[in-house]
Design a protein around this nucleic acid. Structure first.
Lengths: 183, 183
DNA sequence: GCTCACATGTAATAAGTTACATGATTTC
DNA sequence: GAAATCATGTAACTTATTACATGTGAGC
């Protein structure tokens, strides 16, 4: 259902292909909604076509594989607006990083620091990606959504930057304790 | 795998039951990591027991159903620390709310406003729940994680409060346009 | 008398992931 | 010559959800 909404969400804004959909689900704004693989996208597009919510045409560019370009229909547009108004509504946040933070005392200091670095970089990259998208964005609702993401992630990043030393101390302290206990 | 890490994450901090695990996965800090149902928790606990990572004892309180209380073993503790250091590490955020924001123009103004209210309330409730947990929290790593969650959600809430009118205008404007087009 | 909280568990079903299969072109 | 990008798709597998099954006690 997530994949379906995601596909329709992209398609109401314009034509696209399965290959592009997967990229969109990993790179930009749509990362907020899904992280879909080929194995879910292609069957989904076929199903949408069977239901008459999208149409498909094949495009041949010389020297490239055939692309199947999907276009949403009026029926598809109506169905999407309907489905948007159906539950579920609750946002979910799954954070392997915060799971690590929670158990910082049991992790090797080096591993923890590397993970914190990686998380900071991940946030910086995503903030930058969304900022770039924002700078060329003309649709007001898309801009709003991008700004929301940027500000939230900026807050998350700032918290880590300001407080990481505390977490790293915990890891070092209990790491030393383990070494001493072993002696 | 999410459910497994979640169960072990709770169990390293202390004994618990399947019933409690489900509540924890919905209410407090652990909402960040999973939202597990009985159908995933009970089979997971049985598997952990078979693997020797937890032990189980039955507790009978007069007038109440039998509770199966699970305790992590040394082997379980070691396995958890190992598994924590395995991928995946990427945080994922799934936001049906931002999906609505993105398509604000196509939604009825009343529905949108109700959803924004609901999202604000959801954030306020979660911030309050985490703040309460923080006020009685003694473990430094747990405090860190709670504060991280509180600050990030506070930023998300503030953004919505400051910018919701913009989104609501978009919805009203296109709603009026649809009415005029119909006339 | 009804509903909620406590408490465990299974079976059918839905959904998505991973790995595989295929193949051309471009870049290093 | 290797790797990356473009491009579509399937099959086996894993995982989790939903609904069901069962039963007690407390509060309204």
């Amino acid at each position: 259902m997530t994949t379906r909404k995601f596909c329709l969400s992209v398609l109401v804004k314009g034509e696209t292909t399965g290959y592009e959909l997967r990229k969109l689900s990993r790179d930009g704004l749509h990362r907020y909604f899904t992280d879909a693989s080929y194995g879910s996208i292609y069957p989904c597009l076929n199903k949408l076509e069977r239901e008459g919510l999208v149409t498909c045409r094949e495009e041949t560019t010389p020297g490239k594989p055939v692309r199947k370009v999907y276009t949403i229909t009026d029926k598809g547009r109506a169905a999407f607006v309907e489905e948007l108004q159906e539950p579920p509504f609750d946002d979910t946040y799954r954070s392997p990083f915060l799971m690590l933070a929670l158990h910082a005392e049991h992790l090797p200091p080096k591993f923890l620091s590397e993970r914190i670095d990686a998380r900071e970089n991940e946030l910086r990259q995503r903030i930058q990606a969304l900022s770039e998208e924002l700078s060329i964005c003309s649709n007001p609702a898309s801009c709003w959504t991008l700004r929301s993401g940027i500000e939230t992630m900026a807050a998350a990043l700032k918290f880590i930057e300001n407080n990481r030393s505390e977490l790293e101390s915990l890891s070092r302290a209990s790491s030393q304790a383990r070494v001493q206990a072993a002696e």
